[in-house]
């Protein structure tokens, strides 16, 4: 069969002779079989490093396994979960995580939007500016935590020095050691690290809004505030919701920042910190697994909430 024949056969499929159609569908079948072959290695690896360990973690949550003797364990039912429910440190960790995620994502969204709108104006030096924005994103979380740890140092930190000299505070504050301040310091560092990322995602969305839409709005006499709320925001809303979803899920699993800034201190510990402490420091695999299983449920619930409330649509799924 010649190439031309194949093309014609394809474009006029219903009228094509039976033999050609059989051949084309055979080809499709072959492609589909090949697709599964191409997928298989990736799926096997993913099942081994994600699926299996997740199932084991859920299983361990109902046992008294310890790190020392992980294989030698007994089924103890929901005992771990009932202990968890009675531990005030755990509820503190749940509260810390939810508070951290809500506040930091809210600030990041608003601040990111402000920065994105600024960068979206006609501005000289926009390229270098965008590059500067990528710096916090590229810095490893542990490194940014240490950098801020040093800047927030109670005796020698530059932040206390500046605030003291401006007369904003009278005595140096212990930003990360003080239990009432620690969580907010963690939020501040997270905002610094991830706002630029948010801003870049939103900027990409803003740049897809065609210019004539703005012009039409201006001709209709809409002011800048009106344009933002009635034109810009509705148009970038889908991208905004996806960005919020991703950031929220990321914030709910926060570990590095708290571990480096405040150690295992319960006043600022997240659910991930609590779970790892049980698992590694206390060698209690059962408890640690119960805590992480609970975290997975919280994350899933939040994801479902954001997806329904924000009417998030995944283009890829639709196509």
């Amino acid at each position: 069969m010649s190439a031309a024949g194949e093309r014609v056969g394809r474009s006029a499929a219903p009228a094509a002779p039976l033999r050609l159609r059989a051949r084309l569908s055979g080809m499709q079948r072959r492609r589909r079989r090949a697709a599964w072959l191409f997928l298989a290695p990736m799926l096997v690896v993913l099942a081994a490093v994600a699926g299996w360990p997740l199932l084991r973690t859920v299983y361990f949550a109902f046992t008294d396994a310890t790190l020392f003797e992980i294989a030698d364990h007994q089924w103890i039912g929901v005992e771990n979960f009932s202990f968890l429910a009675s531990d005030p440190d755990w509820w503190q960790a749940v509260w810390n995580t939810l508070l951290f995620a809500t506040v930091s994502v809210a600030i990041e969204t608003v601040l990111g939007l402000v920065i994105a709108l600024t960068l979206n104006t006609k501005l000289r030096g926009r390229g270098p500016l965008r590059a500067a924005m990528l710096i916090p994103w590229a810095i490893p979380t542990v490194v940014s935590a240490q950098m801020w740890n040093w800047m927030l140092h109670d005796q020698y930190g530059v932040i206390n020095a500046v605030l003291l000299s401006l007369g904003v505070i009278a005595t140096p504050w212990a930003w990360v050691a003080d239990p009432t301040l620690a969580l907010w310091s963690v939020v501040a560092v997270d905002v610094w690290k991830t706002t630029p990322f948010m801003a870049l995602l939103l900027l990409a969305a803003l740049q897809l809004v065609p210019n004539d839409v703005y012009e039409a709005a201006r001709i209709d006499g809409l002011g800048p505030v009106g344009i933002f709320f009635r034109i810009t925001l509705p148009l970038i809303r889908p991208a905004l919701m996806v960005a919020v979803l991703f950031r929220a899920l990321d914030a709910l699993r926060v570990f590095d920042l708290m571990y480096v800034l405040t150690g295992n201190s319960p006043s600022a510990a997240s659910m991930s910190v609590y779970a790892r402490q049980q698992l590694v420091d206390f060698q209690d695999v059962g408890m640690g697994s119960a805590a992480s299983s609970f975290l997975v449920m919280v994350v899933a619930a939040c994801a479902a909430l954001i997806i329904t409330a924000g009417r998030v649509r995944f283009d890829t799924a639709g196509r």
Binding site: L46, L54, L252, R253, M271, S289, S292, A317
Partner: peptide
């Protein structure tokens, strides 16, 4: 499409969730 969604959700779930299972696997 379901497969793509599963892959996306794997990239989003908390790392600590697989910690004990992964520990066992690695050992």
């Amino acid at each position: 499409v379901p497969l793509l969604m599963v892959i996306l959700s794997v990239s989003m779930f908390p790392q600590v969730a697989v910690l004990s299972g992964m520990f066992e696997l690695i050992r």
